[in-house]
């Protein structure tokens, strides 16, 4: 069973709709036992990193998520929360991936949030991207980003190159909203469910 972590993240409903369209069996839960016993876990996220961490702490889910051994997919802020910390609200995050989430430069010529459809760069041969060509577009909305690192499995260019997708062990993260990225986004979610 796929479990979607329920902690009032803004895109929960969109992720649920995307999973329904894929005809995937899933449950939405904040119950540690249900989450721990999942075959795979999806960790959504939209909004403020600090507020999201506060919500996870309130629900007693911080250690639960850190201790998961099955595949976990963090989406957008869900990916950012997998990192050590975020500049957004100077939040301490889950520290699963030893990276610091930072903000796009305060550059008057640069529109922030990075909002809209963008292509990926440096896409690695990875099961998450199976059947997805490198020139395909994904939908991004974010003001903070995960820097490039050895955990990057795909990057994206906006002013600079940042991490569009990461993996460390059983933890996967995507900065873009696969649930809102048309048929290509659906393909990626399906890859997480069937190929990993």
């Amino acid at each position: 069973m796929i479990v979607l972590i329920d902690y009032d993240a803004g895109n929960t409903c969109s992720v649920m709709n995307a999973l329904k369209r894929l005809e995937v069996d899933f449950v939405l839960s904040d119950d540690p036992e249900v989450i721990r016993s999942a075959e795979k876990v999806i960790f959504p996220g939209v909004g403020h990193a600090k507020a999201a961490m506060d919500s996870l702490r309130e629900k007693g889910l911080v250690e639960v998520i850190k201790g998961l051994t099955q595949p976990v997919l963090g989406i957008c802020v869900g990916m950012q929360l997998l990192c050590t910390s975020s500049k957004e609200g100077d939040a301490d995050c889950l520290d699963v991936i030893p990276l610091r989430v930072t903000k796009f430069d305060e550059n008057p010529a640069l529109k922030v949030p990075h909002m809209g459809w963008n292509t990926l760069t440096n896409v690695q041969d990875h099961p998450l991207f199976k059947g997805i060509e490198s020139e395909e577009y994904f939908y991004f909305v974010h003001s903070y980003y995960v820097p490039q690192s050895s955990y990057s499995i795909a990057d994206c260019e906006y002013d600079l190159e940042f991490s569009a997708a990461v993996q460390k062990d059983n933890f996967y993260g995507i900065q873009f909203h696969a649930e809102k990225s048309g048929p290509i986004g659906a393909q990626l979610l399906s890859n997480f469910i069937t190929q990993i």
Partner: peptide, 8 residues
């Protein structure tokens, strides 16, 4: 709409 549309 949200059920059926996969763009923002």
């Amino acid at each position: 709409v949200a059920e059926q549309i996969n763009i923002p």
